[in-house]
Design a protein around this nucleic acid. Sequence first.
DNA 1: GCACATTCAATTGCGAACAATTAAATGTGA
DNA 2: TCACATTTAATTGTTCGCAATTGAATGTGC
Lengths: 152, 152
Amino acid sequence: MPRKLSTLDPQRLDNQICFAVYSAAHAFNRVYKPLLDRLGLTYPQYLVMLVLWERDDVPVKDIGERLFLDSGTLTPLLKRLEAAHLVRRTRSSEDERQVLIALTAQGHALKEKARSVPQSILAASDCSVSELVTIKDEIVALRDRLNAVIGE
Amino acid sequence: MPRKLSTLDPQRLDNQICFAVYSAAHAFNRVYKPLLDRLGLTYPQYLVMLVLWERDDVPVKDIGERLFLDSGTLTPLLKRLEAAHLVRRTRSSEDERQVLIALTAQGHALKEKARSVPQSILAASDCSVSELVTIKDEIVALRDRLNAVIGE
DNA sequence: GCACATTCAATTGCGAACAATTAAATGTGA
DNA sequence: TCACATTTAATTGTTCGCAATTGAATGTGC
């Protein structure tokens, strides 16, 4: 005779960590949207730019490994960044299979314009930096355990 | 003279909580995929079914508020669930603007087949229930603060 | 050197996700 | 009652995200 099962029922939406993560990702996206609109970027494009601002002139594959995305997602996205004059795509001469992604002057310059984005997000989070770091590390640890299961 | 700034630089990918959430959501999706394939559902479709298993015969808007999704996403998704004979879509007679979503017998029956999904996810998380509940509550609190900022 | 497998990016097709608009039904105020 | 605003789904167009396949370049084992 199940009584007051709802708070424990693993089949209930509100008890699922995955939905929490899924809906939090969308909430972040909505907060980022107006900030990134001013830069002319979508959120996934912003992620690619973050990778390139750290290190330039890397093959598509490296970007994919960093962001957990494949060429089916990245190829059209990078073509859009190229059309926006933020990156250049050139075949590697050492290995003609690889396409190297390099920032243009405009792409480099955009880093300065994007500098204020993280603090706007921090403000929207309404949370201390140390709390955010703690949650972030827990989520990353969880993500890495999930990815380990997939790899096996 | 900034030295070893990388561990603090808010513009670094690995320091961004949003990327942690974003990549964790994709990792969950990849773990769910083989489990949901056997049910013939995608993850967003599974979320809609979770809502309907809790309460049936609700307007599209209610589902949207629960999952933070709009009609642009839900209308085609619900049509696919209807084509799969899992739900029925009927105009409300009291308010002809509303479309009520009800489970079919097949839709109800699928709940049993889906019963083992949460524990498979728990196993993949390689984590205690109490730890997951703690992280989940923190993420939900963060999500709700973000959504509050958007609403204003 | 040559058959074979592997790697890498591109492509195709499908299902989200969302902004913006449309159209119909309902609610409201004068 | 009637003009007007609001609510609700549906629609259109763009961008992700991924599975599956393709084709070219590279690596390998004999």
